[in-house]
Amino acid sequence: MDPYEIEFIGENRIVNIIPNFSHDKIFLICGEFGPFRAGLPMNVPLWLGVMLKQKQKCRIVAPDWMDIEVLENIKEEEKKSRFFTKMPNEHYMVEAKLILGTAAEDKPRASEIKTIIKDIWDIRMSKLRTSMDALMKTGGSYGRLDHLTMMEINSVKPLLPQAMDELHRIKMNARKTMPVQSSLNSAVSQPGSSQSIL
């Protein structure tokens, strides 16, 4: 999938906004939202929040996790942990990009926040590259990847799945051409050795 499609999916998440107009409840197919009361916070899908923001009809309230202190903690955790830590939000990158992109003035220190989020992304991506490398070297055909977000997973497509497909093809050929001498291969892929890349 293209990154813009992941963004499209992420746009369905609910965000908090403060409208500057009043309006009755609005009945959308994805649910009902409102009533809109000027100055009172309310929930809408992210796409609607961004649209209203662009029409200058609301302020977007950045989610609680979009806070320097919280993010610094997440960053430290991510650095310390061997595994991927659970992100505050399944689409943290999409939300950060859209909210800080369209409503940067609603959030103090927006550019610092952007930098920390990018740092967290970088740490996770480098972890992901290391894990992929390990997975390929052990000839694994299976990996577990809890807590990776869709955007992160998408960023290693098509490289990782295709590399695993190729490895599989090579193994199939090896098995076909030398059915007896498979001991060479089995040294790399013992049962249970398929590495978890968590």
Binding site: Y142, G143, R144, R175, S186, S189, Q190
Partner: peptide, 24 residues
């Protein structure tokens, strides 16, 4: 059941609710 091509023992895995995996 995940087929093990190199060896001859297949591997069995469980998928817990909300867990994420890459596999065939």
């Amino acid at each position: 059941i995940l087929e093990d091509l190199g060896g001859d023992q297949d591997e069995e895995i469980d998928l817990e609710e909300n867990s994420q995996h890459i596999l065939q």
